[in-house]
Write a protein that binds this DNA or RNA. Structure first.
Lengths: 151, 151
DNA sequence: TTTTGTGCAAAGGCTTTGCAGTAAC
DNA sequence: GTTACTGCAAAGCCTTTGCACAAAA
């Protein structure tokens, strides 16, 4: 199924901005993108899309279940492609690196803790803030960030 | 140790706003308060404190380790008294209720997951979003919220 | 043609900051 | 008397919204 078909099947018109944003998420190696990341990336590719449109499309995609939105600690919201595989996140507070993990036992305990109190888990990633053990954090700072690297 | 002594021992001048805000957290049954909650509560007690001061004091208290700041999903930041007891949070997406929990096994797994990838856990509460199982959520909506109940 | 989407600029919500007056030490 | 703190209003940051134009169906 092409991006276009996927959009149609959701009742969304197939427009330039929507197609470009969707492919951006499908192609990029950077799995978690903010509205500004998307905006700047499109600009750098000479795609003329307004920031407001980016916000609107990201919101629509989230509501359509294509993307998942995250609010990591202090930062702006970021989105990732929703592949249907529930997972949690490991966030390096030093380099901003994001890794995913899944631990069946943690899932089980969560469910039990909630159930014991009369609640049901609402699907949502856990955010696990960590710091790198080495002083020179070996992880690159945002692989190819579209953010604040002014020469 | 009085609130005043506690402030002095942190190198902070003992001022009206600081004392009032600190006692608010010590006395209230509502453990998690936003800046606006604090501001409105003080107003309702005829304490004349500016919102900017509330923000500044909350930030100072957090940096001093008196308070812990949380950013639950979409909401504004909330603070709770830092009693030194690490715990995680259960957040009802229906009624806004906040419960605390601590699960040694989850702690253990977190540590292991991080260590296996060369990270060390940075102390931070886990947020577990849940919904109540009964349709008529039995939990009151924000015990005595200082928020949006305009008659 | 009808409907939905888009860009721009303006506005919104939460938080921070500049500044001159004020209180703590 | 100094220095730190406060209140107010203004500004900042991220995000949303109003509106007229443009593109999709």
């Amino acid at each position: 199924m092409t991006s276009g078909d996927q959009l149609k099947s959701l009742g969304l018109k197939v427009t330039g901005p929507r197609r470009k944003i969707l492919s951006l998420f499908e192609d990029t190696d950077r799995s978690h993108l903010s509205a500004e990341d998307v905006y700047k990336t499109l600009l750098s590719e000479h795609e003329d899309v307004g920031l407001a449109t980016v916000y609107r499309v990201l919101t629509q995609f989230e509501q359509a279940g294509i993307l998942t939105r995250h609010r990591f600690d202090n930062d702006k919201a970021v989105y990732e492609l929703n592949k249907g595989n529930h997972h949690d996140h490991l966030l390096c507070i030093q380099c901003g690196r994001v890794e995913e993990f899944y631990d069946p036992e943690i899932e089980r305990r969560q469910k039990k803790i909630a159930a014991d109190r009369g609640f049901r888990i609402h699907d949502h990633s856990l955010y696990l803030y960590v710091e790198c053990l080495r002083e020179d954090c070996p992880h690159r700072r945002h692989d190819g960030d579209a953010g604040e690297e002014e020469s």
